[in-house]
Amino acid sequence: MNTLVLQLDEKTVQYLIQTLKEHRIQSTNAYVRFAAKFKQVTILIYASRKVVFQGKNASAVAQELGYKPAVHNSNQDNIKNEQDCPLIGSDEVGNGSYFGGLAVVASFVKQADHAFLRELGVDDSKNLTDVKIKQIAPLLEAKLPHKALLLSPQKYNEVVGDNKLHNAVSVKVALHNQAIFLLLQEGCQPDKIVIDAFTSPKNYQKYLKNENNRFLNPLTLEEKAEGKYLAVAVSSIIARKLFLDNLDELSQKVGFNLPSGAGQQSDKIASQILKTYGKLGLETTAKLHFKNTKKAYQLLKKE
């Protein structure tokens, strides 16, 4: 049996899924996102966007679908890049959501972990379904050194806002710094530390001066780092699960299905929480400095 493996971008994967939807078959592999049988060739699309063609005519079918098999370079997987070293990656989830806490995770990943992570389908949490995240995160938590911090809405509201200890940026600096510091304290020795950029390096260093727990290791803030570094992607997945679990717990506590994000649905739910529990209901479930709070009060007045 001939096997051809391609790594495709998300846009191309979506096109391929659309093209093969009438030939879809079931797959028991938890890591397979989509499977199809086309002209006696089995085509498997993994969550990592790796696409495998299996069958006697694998190369021909791939070419028919528009993908020319590249000459395999045995050195391809060993090309030195910026993440081929022990690395700590840090990311946060919940920053843009009105309801729920703010989750920050720092993870330590070595090159020896890369094959496991890619086979698992590790990717930026925004590219994975919540179901997939809840499947993958426990496996990552069990295998990789990491530190996960959750700032609950109630604690968030105590420290973030006008005339309080933090603003929306400085609180993230504090949490990222603490998560990385704790990981280093446990003996992790990274060659590089990367944070998914949420502010400028200059701004980060300005707020960092207020933190007591400091480390000397240099760190880098990079935009879209979760798509460049597996360590950051791991942190984004664990943080997403932590945020979702917190959102579920808060939903059960108040009896409302709290949505992620900060759209109109959040305004409507917030107004109902105000009606039922008063301001205390929002203080324990939402980030009060968001504009949604004002909109919720306006909706309540209209009732």
Rank of each mutant, 00 (worst) to 15 (best):
residue 199 T to S: 11
residue 227 G to N: 15
residue 17 I to C: 10
residue 278 G to S: 05
residue 256 F to N: 01
residue 237 I to S: 12
residue 206 K to L: 07
residue 154 Q to W: 03
residue 240 R to C: 03
residue 267 D to S: 00
residue 125 S to K: 00
residue 92 E to M: 14
residue 216 L to E: 15
residue 198 F to K: 04
residue 179 A to D: 04
residue 56 K to I: 08
residue 240 R to K: 15
residue 122 V to T: 12
residue 33 R to Q: 15
residue 265 Q to L: 10
residue 22 E to A: 14
residue 38 F to Y: 15
residue 27 S to N: 09
residue 93 V to T: 07
residue 63 Q to Y: 09
residue 80 K to C: 11
residue 39 K to W: 03
residue 103 A to G: 02
residue 83 Q to H: 05
residue 266 S to Y: 00
residue 169 V to Q: 13
residue 140 L to H: 06
residue 69 P to V: 15
residue 169 V to E: 07
residue 300 L to M: 02
residue 261 G to R: 02
residue 259 P to L: 05
residue 109 V to R: 03
residue 181 F to R: 07
residue 212 N to K: 12
residue 55 G to K: 01
residue 76 Q to G: 12
residue 4 L to I: 10
residue 154 Q to R: 09
residue 296 A to V: 04
residue 70 A to M: 14
residue 259 P to M: 03
residue 3 T to Y: 06
residue 84 D to F: 08
residue 61 V to S: 01
residue 21 K to T: 10
residue 29 N to V: 05
residue 91 D to H: 12
residue 190 P to H: 05
residue 269 I to E: 09
residue 43 I to Q: 00
residue 44 L to C: 09
residue 207 Y to F: 15
residue 6 L to K: 03
residue 13 V to F: 07
residue 201 P to T: 07
residue 77 D to I: 14
residue 130 D to Q: 05
residue 148 A to V: 05
residue 5 V to E: 11
residue 68 K to P: 11
residue 296 A to F: 02
residue 37 K to V: 06
residue 88 I to C: 08
residue 216 L to N: 14
residue 38 F to N: 05
residue 25 I to F: 09
residue 57 N to E: 12
residue 179 A to L: 03
residue 64 E to K: 11
residue 55 G to M: 01
residue 295 K to Q: 10
residue 137 A to Q: 09
residue 234 V to Y: 06
residue 292 N to D: 01
residue 259 P to H: 04
residue 179 A to H: 02
residue 104 V to C: 02
residue 289 H to A: 01
residue 245 D to M: 06
residue 33 R to G: 01
residue 194 V to Y: 00
residue 114 H to S: 10
residue 73 N to R: 10
residue 122 V to C: 15
residue 287 K to H: 03
residue 110 K to C: 14
residue 16 L to H: 07
residue 95 N to A: 14
residue 148 A to K: 10
residue 283 E to K: 08
residue 135 Q to K: 13
residue 64 E to Y: 04
residue 18 Q to I: 05
residue 138 P to H: 08
